[in-house]
Design a binder for these strands. Sequence first.
RNA 1: GGUGAGGUGGGUGAGUGGCUUAAACCAACAGUUUGCUAAACUGUCGUACGGGAAACCGUACCGGGGGUUCGAAUCCCCCCCUCACCGCCA
Length: 423
Amino acid sequence: MLQIQYLRDHTQEAIERLKKRNIDAATAVNKALELDEIRRKAQQESDQLLAESNAASKEIGALMQAGKKQEAEIAKGKVASIKEQIKTLEEAQLQSENKLTQHLYTIPNAPYHLVPDGKGAEDNLEIRQSGTIPDLGANAVPHWELAAKYDLIDFELGVKITGAGFPVYKGKAARLQRAMINFFLDENTKVGYQEYQVPHLVNEASGIGTGSLPDKEGQMYHVGIDDLYLIPTAEVPLTNLFRDVIVKAEELPIKLTGYTPCFRREAGSYGKDVRGLNRLHQFDKVEIVQIQHPQNSYATLEDMVNHVAGILDKLKLPYRILRLCGGDMGFTSAMTYDFEVYSTAQQRWLEVSSVSNFESFQSNRLKLRFREGNEKPQLAHTLNGSALALPRIMAGILENYQVADGINIPEVLVPYCGFNKIS
RNA sequence: GGUGAGGUGGGUGAGUGGCUUAAACCAACAGUUUGCUAAACUGUCGUACGGGAAACCGUACCGGGGGUUCGAAUCCCCCCCUCACCGCCA
């Protein structure tokens, strides 16, 4: 959620930035300002009356103490009439606050000035390509065929015990997956991210904190009997650790990493996009999160991008980095880089990581603040990224490392796996 | 799941209807003193929103939500959480 203070103080700037979303930014912002105006008036009226009532009650107390019962009774009558008015004014204030909040929920984050203009995926800006796309010849097959051929991943078994989009990993594939999780966590902790193990279910307040609720309610699995949500990403529990927290400026940046399964309902997907490991209801991911001073958050974003690129370099996978355009960016992000690994057999790019700076959009809801010396607390910036998402890396390895008699294992993973080839 | 006791500022903890503007102590910060470290002394010390150029003023917040009352940290109801014991259990 954008800060109303920001919209008030930097109205034109906010509108210019929001225009990149291809929305009617001026109308959205002006409506917020109008609702804010109403809200402030309502608060002023309500506060004033409350002040009167408080003062009157105090007088009654003094009269009672002095034993002037009759005068106190008269005063009580006065307060009673104020009370009726307070009720309606407080109601009006609450309503005006809710209206403003509800409206602010509908405004996406304001894109950073470096975000390219554009409507969709085709307008994303390619920053660089790296690694070599292998020449697999005519016999290259997509990962789902490899998975069947070498008995690695059983999609039917997953359907049997749960449903579509819940694959079962077997033998060396299970081992490879576990190896990758360890490798990723090691790479992250090596550069200062602290490893966390967090719950895979969160309460409603956490869902609201990171912006999954109320907007994306239908994308999360909900356990009704206990009113808990299965996490769509470790970002939710990791970032919410710092909900309602004021940290010292010296403690920034705070760097967290964690492995969790992720659960996504993803209604409405179809065809080639969901074939094999391309899109799943449950998948594994190692996430990195940083909480940073606003002045440093964009430098940190570049650091995180370089870090993720370093991991892909070590895996020797062909990939490219995109800076997403305004039309393709997520609702909560101010700037996002996507990493895509080339799936040679499918001849398409697969997103394996998304690294974003949310500026204060998340921390505003989370009330995640920092304090510099004795100054007033201010909202911190939050950033996160995948380092990395497992299934598509798995797909990328299976496809790019396939040879005539099997699948080679990237060198860096061999010590983690204990084998160097699947055959 | 059952029974009981609890939940108050960064921490400990007092407060059972108006003398609370939440005491006191500790921690933290600033200053004074001082060979050094330390100690002592003085002062500051919650958050949010609103008003104001500012000083400052107003309002709300004592786990969360309702209620009683002119007035609630305090009384009542519901929920959440913590601790102890019991039950169940990897």
